[in-house]
Amino acid sequence: MKNTGTIALRELTSYTTSPMAYVVGAVFLALTGIFFGYSSATYSSTSVSGYLGPGSLVLLLLGAMLTMRLIAEERKMGTLELLLTAPVRDSEVIIGKFLGSLGLLTALIALTLYYPLLLSIFGDPDWGPISAGYLGLFLLGCAALSIGLFASTLTSNQIVAAVVSGGILFALWFVGQAASFLPKDLGNTVAYFSLSKYYPDFTSGMIDTRGVVYYLSVTVLFLFLGIRSLENSRWN
């Protein structure tokens, strides 16, 4: 537990020293800002689904970008030898890295809270759906980060890691749409695995337990795969 905290903290501070996090964060805020401005002006509503909806795709990119270096860079720089020879469990390394990136993502998501704050100045937004939407964004973020982290354990090349995690993320996102071309039962089953299936419920203000369980399961599954993949590198 202590080790997990040490690694998470180290990861979080290293984000603050690299331009990468600032650039990615700025792009995320700019894009969600555009979505917010557009949807508020167009529909004159105090709903957040206007920017949380399209923001999800930006979040997927963000997940891939923030996690691509987590293990790949350590492998390339040789610092993985420090981590893997210290009396620290592989699971502590992975979970520490995950929590570090989650810390940054949470901070970035928190920065977008000024959109609903603006809404509350000029209108009377309903905070219930807003909380549900943000919960959805956070859960989707957890899943995206764990998938990106898993991809980062596979290679020492950050670009490869980003492409692999982007590939998995977008495949899982769009598999729901593709499912409509499949026979009905198979299509429904496949759709259950889609990252996009439960997301609209959250942004329209509904907290579906199945959605919460789904995103948490994906997160745990890919963290587990990440741990196994890291362990596996000792045997090659």
Binding site: T13, S14, T17, S18, M77, E81, T85
Partner: peptide, 15 residues
């Protein structure tokens, strides 16, 4: 029990 200096020194260059 082990202290280890690998061949490529495992340093974080940003701190």
């Amino acid at each position: 029990y082990v202290g280890y200096l690998p061949e490529s020194i495992p340093l974080y260059t940003d701190i």
